[in-house]
Structures are given as structure tokens and as C-alpha cells.
Amino acid sequence: MSKILEMIEKRNKAWEGAKAFLESKRDKDGLISEEDAKAYDEMEAKVKNYSIEIERLQKMDAIEDELSKPINSAIVSKPIAGQVNEPEKKGRASDEYRKDMLKAIRSNFKQVTNLLQEGVDTDGGYLVPEEYDKRLIDVLTENNIMRSLGTKITTSGLHRITVTATKPAALWVEEGGKIPFDDATFGQITIDAFKLAVGVKITNELLYDSMFPLESYIIEQFGKAMGNAEEDAFLNGDGKKKPLGIFHKDGGAMSDVTTAGVAISSDDIISLVYALGRPYRQKAKFIMNDQTIAIIRKLKDGNGNYMWQPSIKEGEPDRLLGYPVFTSAYAPLVEAGKPAIAFGDFSYYNIADRGTRSMQELTELYAETDTTGFIAKERVDGKLILPEAVHLLTVKAK
């Protein structure tokens, strides 16, 4: 037996043993002690470690196979120095712009080159270099599940999306009979761009310290703050000077599934899944709060099996009835009369970034405290363009 197959067999046995241990330790209320929970967590961690080791062995095999391939022809020519076909970066994409921006930041924007003048924002400040902008988007995505699940578009103005309102229907007709024609109608959804801003203050001592990673610090702080504000709006926003959220009662997802009782049951989850149209279920996912997950993990199906399926591979989401589960601190808590879980194809949630982000420096405002302020701004909007693509589970009112 190969090493990989042996590890797979060990992982399977470990997982079965973990499940059996969990079942054997439950009391009459279906709960386990803190000590048993710790033991189970260790078993689950061991299963994940097996998965990591299996993946490592598979990569090693792939490398061995690649190295064992014969070389068909020798390399007889040397690469010509400077022979690179990459286009020259200009403007905000250039290395010069990035370096000049960092120099300007450290000098309280007293050293502003002519190159930076190309990136002056109409609202004040300087446009973020393209490399900075990309890294800021990376941070936003890492701290914002909706940016990874939704569809991102970039626009220079109002963005209109055409959506079919009615569709033609096929009918059976007699031979030689008149073929009916239906008029397909279309509607338009307009996506705007609302301003989101965040500011940080940095002591001038750090600002002038060349050893301090100022660039990374500012990007990380701005990215986390903007990512949190965006995710909250993408889930709960009312559309007034901010995006329209998935969970909002007007313009959000379809709220047509209500729990049978005041608590969420396994039957309620099944009803939610099949309330969603079959085409949308192919890419469907769950979004819920951590506290809701704590409730869901205790639910079983009609055969006594847990509906929750923990991920056995690092980096992959847990699953519920076979569908990935994403958690957000901004998803609603379980409250009577309010939606608690969203399920659907979130690619129909469109996120529109207008233009690029800009940065502005404030020196005089905080001069008394020997600090300098920095402001980052962006314009963004978000909207679910097809409500039927996402359904909500609402907890029954008491």
C-alpha cells in the first residue's frame, strides 16, 4: 500500500472514531462536557492534520514525477539581458509613482513630485498608486466575505444593469395554426456609488522612522476598517447613502421561508434549501452569524445524523446539507420575527467600485499632539440584482 493510501485510510478511521466518540459522550440533552469537547477537538484537529499531510505527499509525488521526465533538448543559448516583453508601467502603475507617494507620506507631503500631480483627486488628496490599490483590495477581500462571493465591477459613473421582467413561453399549436408571440419586457437596476472614508493618526516619530513599515501599516488599517464597513452594508444596508444589503426587508433577498416554531429546526433548513430555485442551488452557499452556527451544529436529520459537515481540509468552508457555510459577525442574530440565515447564489450581488481609492494627509489638524492624520476614501455600491437568487430564513414571531 502506498504512503498516500495509508494516510487516507488512517484519516478515515480517525474521522469515524471522532464521530463515534462524540455520540457516545452526549448526555440526555444531547450535550457533551467541556473535557469531552476538548478531546473531540483534538480528534478533529488530527483529521485535518492527516489531510494536510496527504496533500503534502501528493505534491511531493507530483514533483518527483516532473523531475523524472527526460529532457528532450538541451538549452544551448543564453537569455539576452533586458529582453523582457512586459509593457512599461506608466502613471500610477509605475514604480516611480509608488516610491514618490511613500516619500510624500514620510515628509508630510512636503516633497511632492510632478509625477504625483498626475494623481490629484477631485475631492482633495492624491490617488492611491495602482500597486497600493490592488493590495488594499486584497485586504478588503480578506476581511469581507461578500467581496469574495459577489460579482465585482468597476465603473466611472452610474451603472445600469438590464434584468428580464417577463420571458416568452412555448405553447403547443395545431399544424398550420397561428403561432403566438409574447413581448419580452426588461427592467433596469441602477447601481450608484456612495462615499466611504476612514482615517488614522500616526505619530510623527513613527512617520519619520524609515525602519517602520509605514506603507503596510496604513494599507492594513484602512483595508480592515473599510472591509468591515462594507460587509456590514452589503448584508444590512438600507440603500440610503450606503449599499442595499442582502438581509434588508426592502430590496434585499426573498424572505419567504419562516420557521415552524420559535427555534430553528432541521426541517426549516431543508425548507430553505428547496425554496431556492434549482438553477441557483448549483452555486448556493449559506451566510449566518457564529451564534447561529452554534445552534445549527446540534441539528440532526431524520436518520439521526448531524446535518453539519466540518471541513476536513484547511482553507475550505464547513458544509450544511452539502453546501458551503460562510460566517459573518454582521449577519443577524437569531431573533423572533427577523431573518437569520441567507441561502443562495451570491454572485447575483453586484459590488460596484467607482474609480479608485484616494489618500489625503492632515498635518495642521493634529499638530498639537505631534501626529499626522491620513484619510482614505472610496466610492462603492452594492445591490442584489435578482432577489430570487437568494432566500432568507425568518424566525417565527412569538
Rank of each mutant, 00 (worst) to 15 (best):
S2T: 05
N12W: 01
A14D: 04
A14T: 00
K19A: 09
F21Q: 00
L22K: 04
S24L: 01
S24H: 05
K25M: 07
D27P: 04
D29V: 01
E34K: 09
D36N: 03
A39Q: 04
Y40W: 02
Y40K: 01
E42Q: 04
A45Q: 04
A45S: 13
M60G: 10
D61Y: 11
V84F: 11
E86V: 12
S94Y: 03
D95S: 07
K103P: 05
L115N: 07
L116K: 07
D123M: 05
G124H: 00
P129S: 00
E130W: 09
Y132C: 01
R135E: 06
R135S: 02
R135F: 04
D138S: 06
L140Y: 11
E142P: 01
E142M: 08
I145D: 01
M146P: 04
M146G: 02
L149E: 00
T162I: 08
V163W: 02
V163P: 01
K178L: 10
D182K: 06
Q188M: 12
V198R: 11
V198M: 08
I202E: 02
L206E: 05
L207E: 02
I218D: 01
Q221I: 06
G223I: 04
A229R: 12
D232F: 14
F234S: 07
N236F: 11
G239R: 04
P243D: 13
F247R: 12
H248S: 12
A263L: 11
S265N: 02
L272V: 05
Y274V: 12
P279D: 13
Q282D: 12
K283V: 05
I295V: 15
K298F: 02
L299N: 02
W308M: 10
P324C: 07
A329L: 14
A331L: 09
L333S: 15
V334I: 13
A336K: 15
A336Q: 15
D345R: 03
A352T: 08
E364M: 06
T369R: 13
F374I: 03
A376N: 10
E378D: 08
R379F: 09
R379L: 10
T394K: 13
K396I: 13
K396E: 10
A397F: 10
